[in-house]
Amino acid sequence: MMRELHVSLNQTQKVRLQAAFQHLSDIGSQASSGLLVSVSDTIPVNNEDGILKGHGTSERDGQVVATVCGVVERVNKLVYVRALRARYKPEVGDIIVGRVIEIAPKRWKLEINFSQDAVLMLQSMNLPDGIQRRRTAVDELNMRTIFEENDVICAEVRGFQHDGSLHLQARSQKYGKLERGQLLRVPAYLVKRRKQHFHDLEQYGVDLILGCNGFIWVGEHVVPADNEMVEDQESTLKDKEQSYTPLEIRQNICRIANSVRLISALGFAISVDAIIDTAEASKSSNVDIKDMLGAEFYVQTAEREVQKRISLLKKKRG
């Protein structure tokens, strides 16, 4: 269960961390009853008729074998393997954060941690003037005023086209360019699909976007702009340049970002609750932002997670 760590631990810390992980794996083995398989393992299907072989499975010599390492899942007669550590696989409706890498005719290409670049068409996003209309050649020429290369943007997965390319859409005020914050990359499997991926952490004045593709955005809170854009756009632009993010908020952003880094380094699932929890803990125990990634707090976080899971387990058993 040990993950690649970049922290140097002293002897006692090492022992404590090992004990914590031991606990976790104990609890984990109690809780999950799923069958773990690795590549080419046979999946027992007791010869029922009409077994459906889903993702991560294949048929060989009349037997169902796994093609990835993971947990066997069954839904009625469908058998599939949920990979433990896999690349991000988009599904329709996922919220993703990505970086623009290329501007092509009528489209932006985004790097989103998938096996191919995603496509955001000019027509599948709202224009800055908020008017619904056909996109003209002028709009196409002005594409760089909306997003430039290396901009970080947030969008939703619209679906796969017939040619297999992945299309995104950003038809909402909350999608679009992300500024004044940090982009973090974590393994995509740590981010679980939820009802909510946009979070406004009011006590910190920070926006948190947990992209399903493992890109996480921590940035200054922005008030969603009104649909009718103000006419004197230039003056607002100037205002923006002049205004700056206050130091306190910058610190908060860093604190949250470090919490995310810490949780992902420990290999725990990333959720808002976990992030806030960690950030609060660091604040209450007076850990400096820069020390959050240090050895001591690292071990403490692991131990806190153990406590949390134990109490959860107790609650479940009543």
Binding site: E48, D49, G50, I51, L52, G54, E73, V75, N76, K77, L78, Y80, E91, V92, G93, R193, R194, K195
Partner: peptide, 30 residues
């Protein structure tokens, strides 16, 4: 949160999505 079965039902819009999905998952078409 939409699960595997839900994803199947999402695709079916011109007939009874629940029954078709159930039939599919019970392996009737296989």
């Amino acid at each position: 949160v939409v699960m595997v079965k839900g994803q199947v039902a999402c695709e079916i819009s011109s007939a009874d999505e629940l029954i078709l999905t159930e039939l599919m998952f019970s392996g009737s078409f296989k």
